[in-house]
Simulated scan of single mutants.
Amino acid sequence: MNQTNTRAMVETAFVSAIGIILTAVSVYLPVFGFLSFFVTPAAIGIIGTKWGFKYSVVGTIVIFLLSTMLFGIFNSLTVGLFALVGVGVGAGHRLSWNTLKRLLVPSIMMFFAVFFTIVASYTVTGVELSSVGPTLVEQAQSLANEAMEVNPSITQAQADEFVESVQKNVDTLGDMFFMAIAIAATVYTYVTIQISLWLGHRLRLSIPAFLAVEQWRMPIWGAGIFALGIIGFHGASYVHLDNPLVIAISKNLLLLGNFICSIHGFAALADIMTSYRVSNKAKWILLFAYTLLFSQALVILGIIDMFLDLRSRFNQRGY
């Protein structure tokens, strides 16, 4: 065994130990659980970038096995899912994939890992996903009845409205469950990539540049998907096509189109701020605040920029 292999194994073991420690922190101090979910995958990605795919896989397996022995299968599965993203991120860095491939491959890996976990959980526990919704609605009905008994001012109409609201939310979540997981996996992968790039810069690793968000331009058909989702969701009843399948497809198209247009709007707003020389820290604070408070405004901005190319106009004024 040469010196290079020894160093790679030592660094992999060190990162695995960090992953176990952060898992312990997330178990006993849940408020700091984000450290395990963000730092561990980024560290696994750095191992994969520096030493190769097999070392990042070994690190993930070690973290998973030790977490299972120390904290139980549930916590180990959670940590393993997120660490798997780090494996894909490290492979993308080392093999110099383009930005789209570096973002999508780890996201797809995480999506299928979550799907496998759901299937495995169903096999072990025997709990069907279809039973979760009715159970939540029953609990909401019980809460409404208890509230009416405790507070006589609550009317039956208000209680029914609460239960109906829970029913709609459960139906919507059920229809868009896997699309929501796919979008969440993509966002999480992007955050992991950015953390790994920061770590790589601090460690002076040579990592191929990742396209800055200001330069992202989403395909214009994203607006078309968003429009189809709106038409299907709100207009199906007018043409007597409001069956569950059409509604479910429309909801997924609506969510996917909303996400694509939001990303384009986010990138456009970041580019506009850059053109006006807003400091990097202030720019990201404003962007996240705007996203939290005016998320639908980003969708509108994204659609407008797709068709009218507002960025070029603001860039000319900014400079």
Rank of each mutant, 00 (worst) to 15 (best):
L84D: 03
G133N: 06
L77S: 10
V105T: 13
V79H: 00
F71M: 00
S67D: 00
G90R: 01
I154T: 01
P134Y: 00
S130G: 15
L77F: 10
T125C: 03
A159Q: 11
V150N: 09
M110W: 08
S131N: 09
L103E: 05
E138L: 08
G126M: 06
I118M: 12
I73K: 09
Q156H: 10
L100C: 04
I108C: 00
E138H: 13
Q156E: 12
K101S: 06
A144M: 00
M109N: 05
N151T: 04
G86D: 03
F74Q: 01
I154Y: 01
F82L: 12
V87F: 06
F112G: 06
S96P: 10
I154G: 01
V105H: 14
M69F: 12
G126R: 14
S153W: 00
F115I: 13
V105E: 05
V124I: 11
E146D: 13
A91G: 15
V132S: 01
V105G: 02
A120Q: 00
F82P: 07
L136W: 07
A144L: 01
E149F: 11
Q158R: 10
V87L: 04
R94D: 13
T117K: 04
T135F: 09
L66W: 13
M109W: 02
V79D: 03
W97T: 15
F111M: 02
G72P: 08
S131V: 15
T155V: 04
V105F: 15
S142Y: 12
E138N: 14
M110P: 00
G88W: 05
G133W: 13
A140I: 06
T78S: 12
F74T: 14
E149D: 12
Q139E: 09
S67R: 04
S76M: 07
L77R: 01
L129V: 12
S153G: 04
M109P: 06
L95R: 15
L136I: 15
G92P: 14
M148K: 15
F112E: 05
F112A: 04
A144V: 08
V87I: 07
S153R: 02
T117L: 12
G90N: 05
V114P: 11
T68K: 09
L65G: 11
N151R: 03
G86C: 02
V85H: 08
T117Q: 02
E146I: 14
G88L: 07
F116C: 11
S153E: 03
S130D: 07
S67F: 12
W97Q: 14
G80K: 03
V89I: 09
A147Y: 14
T68P: 06
R102N: 07
V119M: 09
A157D: 01
A113I: 02
L70H: 05
S131C: 02
